[in-house]
Design a protein around this nucleic acid. Structure first.
Lengths: 172, 172
DNA sequence: CCGAATTGTTTTAAGCCTAAAATGTTTCCA
DNA sequence: TGGAAACATTTTAGGCTTAAAACAATTCGG
């Protein structure tokens, strides 16, 4: 068994290790921990929204997007921002229009487009929920120092950029 | 308008700010960024699993739990580990039993309990998928240095502990 | 100007997910 | 020992989510 060939097989022309079953256990553990944190917090927020306001998390998220856009958004915009499928938004919006929280109208200039906005009721209810929601988040992250928060922001920005790059690589 | 009383209202007996609509915008932004990262990566993994192996992410996650437990797990165990509801696991397991990936049997000693295991087929298929899955994760996190990974692990551990504490506070 | 590609939305079919109630089983303790 | 409490799972009802196909409207190139 020539050890040399093993070594050669691990090196490409630029002397970087390739084709070796590399150990990516650390990244895997990081991903699982990231997922655990998100699932934990998301579940907590979901439960509190239901108990306090009898509203679901997706509805709250959609209203949060619209609260930032006084002039309304198209369904596609919402879909991209929330990172969910188009069909998903259709149903979500339908239920929120039925409950009187959203106003939906077809664009004057492009009849393909639906523009949705918060109604007065929708905005009032969202603001009320959002104020309390913010305190929940603060409490969930309470043990992090301001420095921890800054550092996490930085590292997660880097993570997001890395993942987006990887996703773009695959699509191309 | 006595400015003094405003000030007094903002201080408790230990001279710390309380009862003030504090600014938790940083924590909120952190939470949204965390959620974005997770959603982005999760969506990417979901898509790759579907395209390469025609398997859903929840099925993959369940098999991953069982791969770590050669002696099998009860449905409750799985439910806690995956942080999903009991009823959810019931359906997921049913489909995986039907497709021949899981073996399910009632415990000899406690007839309430169902013990599930990977079948030979289930284990083989999972191992095949897991190997590739690990490379996807490595690629998604590729721009993070080993130091970034360590630091993120540390901060997310702190975040998890903080959130668990907050959740426990609410339940009590 | 006309057809082809593109864009925005909805529909469809299937699966995922939750909370709460129901069912069956075991344990505990008075 | 008998019944209440605890436990494990399933069922129910409703909503969320996706991918893919279908539909409708606009834009673009020849």
């Amino acid at each position: 068994m020539p050890a040399v060939s093993d070594c050669i097989n691990m090196l490409d022309s630029e002397t970087k290790a390739v084709e070796t079953p590399e150990d990516h256990a650390e990244e895997l553990r990081l991903w699982l921990r990231l997922l655990t944190c998100t699932t934990l917090i998301e579940g907590e927020v979901r439960g509190r929204l239901r108990q306090r306001f009898d509203v679901t998390l997706p509805r709250f998220d959609l209203m949060a997007q619209l609260d930032k856009a006084p002039d309304g958004m198209t369904l596609s915009d919402v879909s991209k921002r929330m990172m969910v499928s188009n069909g998903n938004v259709t149903g979500l919006v339908e239920r929120l229009v039925d409950s009187g929280h959203l106003d939906r109208r077809t664009s004057e200039t492009d009849r393909r487009v639906q523009v949705i906005r918060l109604t007065k009721l929708g905005r009032a209810e969202f603001r009320r929920m959002a104020a309390e929601h913010e305190t929940w988040i603060a409490d969930l992250f309470a043990d992090l120092t301001p420095k921890d928060v800054r550092e996490l922001m930085r590292l997660l920005a880097k993570t997001k950029a890395s993942a987006q790059k990887s996703a773009a690589r695959r699509r191309s």
